[in-house]
Nucleic acid binder design. Sequence first.
DNA 1: ATTGAAAGAGTCTCAGT
DNA 2: ACTGAGACTCTTTCAAT
Lengths: 150, 150
Amino acid sequence: MNSKLNLDKLDLQIIEHMMDDAEISYADLGKKLFVSGGTIHVRIKKLQKDGVVKGTRLNPDLKLLGYDVIAFIGIYLRESSLYDSVAKELHKIKEIVRLNYTTGNYSMFAEIVCKDISELRDVLHEKLQKIKGIERTETFISLEESFREA
Amino acid sequence: MNSKLNLDKLDLQIIEHMMDDAEISYADLGKKLFVSGGTIHVRIKKLQKDGVVKGTRLNPDLKLLGYDVIAFIGIYLRESSLYDSVAKELHKIKEIVRLNYTTGNYSMFAEIVCKDISELRDVLHEKLQKIKGIERTETFISLEESFREA
DNA sequence: ATTGAAAGAGTCTCAGT
DNA sequence: ACTGAGACTCTTTCAAT
């Protein structure tokens, strides 16, 4: 079941391959999948038009860039109705790269990327704790990223 | 401080831009940044050689693909020395797309992407709970992804 | 280091199947 | 729908600065 989209095996193979490496040429990808480069091209155009493919992104090594600290933050809200306004405030903090509204202990779940621990502490103290509606946070600092595929 | 790398403003501008959109041509990116396409090319080659740029990835709309369920899993280990062997087992589960070794409550922190809730439950029950060394898990299902930049 | 131009490679279009 | 080939655009190299 692919929602309302009719994606066949070839579409999915193209997506799967290019999720890892979007630099491969259509001709080469065609060879791997036993179709012509032209067909790959047509399929990718269709996937873009349908919105399944939203573009390609550079995959940088954040550690080498000096962004050593990844942390996850579980956030407790005073009331869950505050979600939208808090989300808006969190979006303004550039170190926060991701935010999900979740079931379970926490009301929301954020990911933050900082240059170092002192910057992390600054963001938590100076910016995050001052947002109205946030009751409490729990921080999980990543000591090592074992793997990442998405 | 950019580790041992000497990245100047232009390098960082290129990375910043291409993190959002890796499809732009060198000529066009050069125009935006007021240098020639050739210079963009040279810089990107250097960034690749240095390992700062690890390639490009397709950015698919997982929801449209029928992968509606994102969840985060906090994992308690029986002993933290089991990290490596458990990480290896978790890597074999294709639904688990990310794994971090963290400070705080949990020993490790995983992200999982599934087609639906029943698949999520299957993975948790049939695969995850059977891994030796995992004592307990806590799951946070994402009801909404507010934003994502990394 | 950056530029601009030429050579090489890839994308895109389309007529034919 | 898929193919293959031609037109077009982009990447890559390089001599000059």
